[in-house]
Computed example of a mutant assay.
Amino acid sequence: MIEAAMIWNEPNNKSHWDPEIDPGWAMFGETAKLAGRAIREVNPNLPRVLGGISPIDPSFIENLTGRGVMEEIDVVAVHGFPLDWNLWKIDEWPAKIDEIRAVTDKPIWVTEVGISTFGAEEVQAWGVDRTAELLIGKAPRIHWYSLYDLPQAWGATTRHREAEGSSYYRHFYMGLLREDGSPKPSLEHFAKHTPHMGLCQWFHYEDHRLYEAVEWMKRLGVTYLRTGLSWADSFRPNALDWFDRQMEALADFDVTVTFCFTPEHRGIAPHHTSPPQVPEEFAEFCASMIRRYAPAKATIAA
């Protein structure tokens, strides 16, 4: 069911890890190492992926390498949105991967790449094809973000809102399907590139779109998916029931599951981007999820 475990999401982006509390990422480094070790102890064969970095910054990887994080990581992941937020052109994708390849010998996955339809739906349709052309064969995993538009009522997970201006609203238009579930022109373009391209789709707690999403992904020929299990959500009532339903629904896909989001009451600050008060607690959450959904297979003696 789970093909890889990702430790956090965009740790070098202040929307997901607070740089004011942890300006040099020393706390993140310790948190990631503990999580990596905990995952390995439960299932030593499961690849451990460093949370996709955004921006794509080789100096960040060098920093974590110096802190010993890469000893507990098997794959490095990157995220890129050159037509929406990044200050580089879409044609630079291969060069961006090469920048990271120059500072690590780990495999490099693209676990989020996408284009919003905020300006025009035709731009996304073109962008799906161009992204496939640039990245298929360059990275072993390419996760298009995302299947669905983000519902307007939910709000985007970002701490940049005041500075982003109109670009903030691009968060709500990244899907191949509109909020009401109707397809955009890009859907047919994406289907031409499966199974080489997969999807990244976050499911909110008790997400009503889960089973419809599974139907769409099978129809599109998707074989691999990235999603998340939230440490913060694990403290909600009946959290394990929801996690079980989510993972059971996704059982036919190769899933990279992302562990992230600090519970407010367990952070140094009361926010999901905060480093945890006790990083071992996050490591134990990761280990418990692997024990539940991806335990090591028993070896049968000859």
Rank of each mutant, 00 (worst) to 15 (best):
D244E: 10
Y148I: 03
G66R: 03
H193W: 01
A4H: 04
G198F: 00
S116P: 03
D18C: 07
I39S: 07
A95Q: 14
Q246S: 07
N43W: 05
F261V: 10
V75K: 04
N12P: 12
I7F: 12
H271T: 13
P11R: 11
I115R: 10
H196I: 07
F259G: 08
F253S: 02
E281G: 10
E3F: 08
P82N: 09
K184S: 12
L150F: 03
Y211C: 12
T273K: 11
A301H: 08
E121L: 01
E212Y: 05
N13K: 12
F253N: 02
P270G: 11
G137E: 00
R130G: 09
V78Q: 06
P11F: 13
K14H: 12
W85N: 03
P279T: 06
T65R: 14
D91H: 12
W93P: 03
M197T: 02
D149W: 03
K297L: 13
W126G: 15
L210R: 00
P237W: 01
R161F: 14
N13A: 13
F203R: 00
W144A: 00
A269W: 13
N45R: 14
D22A: 09
N12V: 07
V69N: 06
G198V: 00
W126R: 14
S146E: 01
F282N: 07
V214Y: 00
K89P: 10
R67W: 08
E3A: 09
A120F: 15
G51A: 07
L83C: 11
H79A: 09
I39A: 08
A125I: 08
L134T: 03
P47V: 01
F190K: 02
W109Y: 08
E3S: 10
L50S: 01
P237G: 06
V128G: 09
F172M: 02
N238C: 13
P44R: 03
E122I: 12
I2F: 06
C260N: 15
R219C: 11
V255R: 02
W85A: 05
H16L: 11
L50K: 04
E122W: 14
E10L: 15
A298K: 15
N13R: 09
I136H: 02
A102M: 05
S59V: 13
T65H: 12
C200V: 13
H208G: 12
C260P: 13
M174C: 07
L50W: 01
G119Y: 15
G165P: 04
E281S: 11
L210A: 00
G127H: 08
M27C: 10
P11E: 11
T299V: 15
I56P: 06
W85M: 06
S182N: 07
P275E: 07
I268L: 13
F81Y: 13
S54R: 15
W109E: 03
V257N: 01
L220K: 02
S186W: 04
V42Q: 03
S116Y: 07
T194H: 05
A32N: 12
K218H: 08
G155I: 02
A302F: 12
R226C: 13
Y145K: 03
Y169D: 10
C286F: 06
M27G: 15
H193C: 04
T131C: 06
A251S: 15
A5C: 12
Y293M: 04
Q246P: 01
G114S: 10
K218G: 05
A156Q: 05
D244R: 08
E215L: 14
K14A: 15
D18W: 05
P237R: 00
P279D: 06
N43I: 01
I268G: 12
